[in-house]
Computed example of a mutant assay.
Amino acid sequence: MSSNVLSSRMHTGLTFDQIANSIGKDEVWVAAAFYGQAKFSSDELKNVSEILGISVDESLSVLGDHWWPNRGIGPMPPTDPVIYRLYEGVLVYGHAIKAVIHEKFGDGIMSLIDCKVKVAKKPDPKGDRVLLTFEYASFLLEFH
């Protein structure tokens, strides 16, 4: 994503949720678009540019229809502490989660296409908790 768009968001003080609500999208999807992991449509990019007070023409020339995201890039294992903890969660619980999914859904896969991700804060006496909800589409595999 253009550093101009990211720095403009920081200067406005707007949250991803505020921007998302103004363009009718989910806050995690909007954040993903800001970090180059999703792609705004031209209309969405125009709206975001106007919200951030930056040149629509510049945003479209940098991030218009000719630009495509590079999803999932970064070092492995991740070095950022938050991203590493997500990665660690999959490493530790991945097989158990997979087994439970197969018990409940059969022999299928999950798809990030149309995936919905929510982040919430839950107060706890030991310290606030992060609630992550991933809603994947489920596809049953059929073998003939």
Rank of each mutant, 00 (worst) to 15 (best):
T133Y: 02
G127M: 01
I19Q: 00
P78F: 06
F34N: 03
S138N: 10
V48T: 04
L91H: 09
S41I: 05
L52T: 03
I83G: 03
I83N: 06
H11T: 15
P69V: 08
N47M: 14
N21D: 13
C115P: 00
L14F: 10
T15K: 01
G36A: 07
E142G: 08
A33W: 07
I109D: 10
E27T: 05
Y87R: 04
H66M: 05
G24S: 03
D124R: 04
P81L: 04
L140S: 14
P125W: 02
A137P: 03
R129Q: 09
K98G: 05
S55I: 11
L60G: 14
A33G: 05
V28T: 09
M1H: 09
W68C: 05
K126R: 14
E88F: 02
V5L: 15
V82R: 09
K39S: 08
D65E: 15
P75Q: 10
P75R: 06
G13I: 06
K98P: 03
D124G: 06
E142V: 08
E27G: 02
D128T: 01
V62A: 13
S138M: 09
A96D: 15
I23S: 11
K126Q: 08
G64H: 04
K121G: 02
S42N: 12
P125V: 02
T15S: 15
Y87A: 12
T79G: 14
M1A: 12
S8N: 02
A20F: 01
Y87L: 07
E88L: 05
S22T: 07
H11A: 15
M1D: 01
D114Y: 07
F143H: 15
I101T: 02
Y87H: 15
R71I: 15
D124K: 01
F105D: 04
S111P: 06
